[in-house]
Simulated assay, not measured.
Amino acid sequence: MFRTTASRALPRSLRLQAAAKTGNAPSKLLRAHLQTYASQRTSSGLLAVALREPLKRSVVQYRSITSYQSPSFVKGRNVEEEAEIGRATLQATPETVSLASTTSGAGAEIAARQAVDDHDDVSGGIKAEFQTIVDTFTLKDVPKEALVVGLAGVLPYLATSLSTVYLSWDIQYAAHHGQGFILSAETAERLLHLIEPIELGYGASIISFLGAIHWGLEWAGYGGNQGYSRYAIGIIATAVAWPTILLPAELGLIAQFLAFSFLYFADARASVRGWAPPWYATYRFVLTFVVGASIVASLVGRGQIADLITRPPGPADRMRAVREAQLEDLEASDAEAKARAELEEEQAEAAEAEAEGEGEDEDEE
């Protein structure tokens, strides 16, 4: 092995840098700048034949630059605190020392063992999951007024959903036993058809209201002025909500379920972006969960009696009937006008014939 000037000087450079870091010169900062100038030297004889490449000779120069520390470097230094830390005795923690302690953090193994213990403890995991659910549904961060009004807003949905489930069960009971448990089959079916527009209309109103909340946040400037991107949420919600009341009950409920899900996604993203309060996403999740469960219960109840009830005319059917009635009235009026015109024409012809007959009689006389 050939040792050049650079290879011999490198250990000295490292020692100088280590001395500067340990503070052997407390008032000066020693920096060693390694400047290497490589010059190609041709070799001859046996060495050139052995290496087959020219050797490079490195010339190492050292230049020491010393500079006094600026006053800002020691500004705010607490000598007494440093002395107290220096007098403190290190606490021995042999449980953190192992074969792998030099490659991981001091507390990594303890944390790993704790994680394994928690994973093995099934009851502890179940308790943790249950606590997460409890923390979600308690809504601790939600203002009291918003919580009370929001929960009151889902009560009509719960009432219509539970009524639909009971009436469906009563209709099934009447189909199997000949009469209903409390109500007759005809009365239960009539009440069920009465609940349909109430549930759909209330759902459309709530969806429109949830979209209008973003307009209020935009006017209040919460999270900054976002412009059309926030106004669009309210516009889309209203445009989707109200046409659902023209659909059959089942299709209308499915469309509203999708609308509520879309609005929850939009509200959660708005909360993450800072367009809405931080608690709004959890608040909307709980309310959407209650509304979605109510819609699903209504759909299940209606699906059980789909072949036991008659489908009443919906708003679209009524509009179609009105349109057909208008067309019939228009055709009737056209036919009446045509008949009147023909009658007038016949009367005119009869009058002309009578006038001609009178003229002939006068000529004969």
Results as ranks from 00 to 15, higher is better:
Ile133Trp: 10
Val74Cys: 04
Lys75Cys: 03
Val142Asp: 02
Phe130Gln: 14
Thr138Glu: 01
Val97Glu: 15
Phe130Ile: 09
Asp118Cys: 12
Ala115Leu: 14
Ala83Asn: 12
Thr138Lys: 06
Glu81Tyr: 06
Gly105Pro: 06
Asp120Gln: 15
Ala112Asp: 14
Asp121Tyr: 14
Val79Leu: 11
Ser123His: 11
Glu81Lys: 04
Arg77Leu: 07
Val134Lys: 06
Val79Gly: 03
Glu82Arg: 09
Pro71Asn: 05
Thr102Cys: 05
Gly86Cys: 08
Thr136Lys: 00
Val134Gly: 01
Thr136Asp: 02
Pro143Val: 02
Phe73Ala: 14
Ala106Ser: 05
Arg113Asn: 14
Phe73Tyr: 12
Glu84Cys: 08
Phe137Asp: 00
Lys144His: 05
Ser72Gln: 06
Leu139Cys: 01
Ala106Tyr: 07
Glu82Gly: 01
Glu82Trp: 04
Asn78Ile: 02
Ile110His: 04
Pro71His: 07
Arg77Met: 04
Phe130Thr: 15
Gln131Tyr: 03
Glu95Tyr: 09
Val134Tyr: 06
Glu82Ala: 02
Ala108Cys: 07
Val74Ile: 07
Phe73Gln: 13
Asp121Val: 13
Ala92Pro: 00
Ala128Phe: 12
Val116Phe: 04
Leu147His: 01
Leu147Thr: 02
Ser123Trp: 15
Ala100Met: 09
Asn78Leu: 02
Phe137Thr: 02
Glu81Cys: 01
Gln114Gly: 06
Ala92Trp: 11
Leu90Ser: 12
Val97Trp: 05
Thr136Tyr: 00
Val79Ala: 11
Gln131His: 10
Ala106Trp: 08
Arg87Glu: 10
Ser70Glu: 07
Lys127Met: 10
Ile85Glu: 15
Asp120Met: 11
Ala88Thr: 14
Ala92Cys: 05
Glu145Ser: 06
Ala112Cys: 08
Ile110Met: 08
Arg113Lys: 14
Ala100Cys: 07
Glu81His: 04
Asp141Ala: 07
Gly107Ala: 06
Glu145Arg: 08
Gly76Ile: 03
Thr136Cys: 00
Val149Lys: 08
Glu129His: 15
Gln114Asp: 11
Ala115Met: 12
Ala92Thr: 12
Gln114Asn: 12
His119Val: 03
Glu95Thr: 11
Gly105Glu: 08
Lys75Arg: 05
Glu145Leu: 10
Asp117Leu: 08
Lys144Gly: 02
Glu109Asn: 05
Leu147Arg: 05
Val79Thr: 09
Lys127Gln: 15
Ala106Pro: 00
Glu82Ser: 02
Ala115Arg: 04
Ala100Lys: 10
Ser101Ala: 08
Val116Tyr: 04
Ala146Ser: 04
Leu99Phe: 15
Ala146Arg: 05
Gly150Val: 00
Val116Met: 09
Gly107Phe: 11
Lys140Ile: 00
Val116Ala: 11
Leu90Gly: 14
Asp118Gly: 12
Gly76Ala: 01
Thr102Phe: 10
Ala111Ser: 13
Thr89Met: 09
Ala112Asn: 11
Glu81Ile: 05
Arg113Thr: 13
Ala88Trp: 13
Phe137Val: 04
Leu90Glu: 08
Arg77Ser: 03
Ala92Tyr: 10
Thr96Gln: 15
Lys75Gln: 04
Ile133Gly: 03
Glu109Cys: 02
Arg87Cys: 13
Val74Arg: 08
Gly124Met: 10
Glu82Cys: 01
Ile126Asn: 13
Lys127Ile: 13
